[in-house]
């Protein structure tokens, strides 16, 4: 099953080893459906993260007590009217499950497209990895419901952004621009230094650390001590600042190579992290009130926290969703940096 015919293996190896040399017709044309499905997965998973974030914001994770069904019904056969006109908690929890199922179908489609279109071997494995990740994410959500365990809700929340990042990587590596980089590399005024890769790895690690820390705060256990909670908050804030300082450095470094496919996402990263810091501050304010450190601002006095207000919930959920966006963008920058390094090495050889 796993063995590949000798002729195909050699073709694969050629493609894998020499990503810079597309076969006739170009993989971009050959992987058209895989690329389209990858884009679709990106467009579905980010809203899925939003809806999942809303589920946690509204404490609706246990609005449906069973899994994989919904109140005894098959997931897809739950009455539409009860879903749409029932309680809001049920609406978003069941909607989250339905959207997750659609993502699962798209992930299956990606694997099929990768095999049918004879994509590069590692891309095929990437699609298989995405499918497994989507299935695992669904199972984690199911375990969270069946055990009624908030820790699994936290793990479920931490794993979702990884799935999103993988989908984004799939969309990038199957795109036309992935192959058109050759021309850009030929005109590169200055190749990237090795340590730029290290600088590109750091945002990925730090943004994921931030996601884990944020999940710890969001799914905090009642028995967590105030000191532990305070420590997590402090590390979360410091790491956010470090990450934001790192992003302009990364932007300047990758911009030197003159490749827009690399410098553009690095530029977005600065914007995303800056926005995320504002959203994080907003999330704290709408959850715990106006912080003393912002007392110097005139409009904070008398701020009233509103439990589960609509705008407040959107701010908190946006903080979760933009966190995933930062991780995915960091991962894309890293992948593009590695690609750039690889192509330069290939050209010089």
């Amino acid at each position: 099953m796993n063995q590949t015919p000798p002729t195909e293996t050699s073709a694969d190896d050629l493609q894998t080893a020499g990503d810079a040399a597309p076969p006739s017709g170009g993989p971009a044309a050959d992987s058209r459906w895989l690329h389209r499905l990858s884009l679709l997965s990106v467009l579905l998973v980010w809203p899925l993260i939003w809806v999942g974030g809303l589920v946690t914001t509204y404490d609706a994770g246990m609005a449906v007590p069973d899994w994989p069904g919904t109140y005894g019904y098959n997931l897809f056969l739950y009455p539409l009217s009860t879903w749409l006109y029932g309680p809001f908690d049920l609406f978003i929890e069941h909607g989250h499950r339905l959207l997750g199922a659609v993502v699962g179908l798209v992930a299956i489609g990606m694997v099929v497209a990768a095999v049918v279109e004879r994509s590069r071997r590692w891309v095929r494995w990437l699609t298989v990895g995405i499918l497994l990740a989507v299935i695992s994410q669904g199972v984690l959500g199911g375990i969270r419901v069946l055990l009624g365990d908030r820790t699994f809700a936290m793990i479920h929340g931490c794993f979702g952004p990884l799935v999103f990042a993988l989908c984004c990587i799939a969309a990038v590596v199957t795109s036309r621009t992935w192959w058109q980089r050759r021309r850009a590399v030929s005109a590169t005024p200055k190749p990237l230094a090795n340590w730029v890769v290290v600088v590109a790895v750091l945002p990925v690690l730090l943004s994921y650390l931030q996601l884990v820390l944020g999940a710890q705060l969001r799914h905090v256990q009642p028995a967590t001590t105030p000191r532990t909670f305070t420590l997590i908050v402090a590390v979360h804030i410091v790491t956010a600042c470090v990450l934001w300082l790192l992003t302009p450095i990364l932007f300047v470094l990758v911009r030197r190579c003159g490749d827009l496919t690399l410098s553009r996402p690095a530029g977005w990263l600065i914007l995303f992290v800056g926005t995320q810091i504002l959203l994080g501050t907003g999330s704290w304010i709408v959850n715990y009130g106006w912080p003393s450190v912002l007392d110097f601002l005139p409009f904070g006095e008398g701020f009233l926290v509103r439990s589960k207000g609509f705008l407040d919930s959107i701010i908190v959920t946006a903080h979760v969703a933009v966190g995933s966006l930062i991780l995915a963008t960091s991962a894309v920058v890293l992948v593009q940096t590695l690609r750039q390094k690889y192509l330069v090495a290939h050209e010089s050889n």
């Binding site: 009130g289 106006w290 509103r306």
Partner: peptide, 10 residues
Amino acid sequence: PGTGMPSFAS
């Protein structure tokens, strides 16, 4: 108002 105690009007 002015503290972390929310309104649970909803």
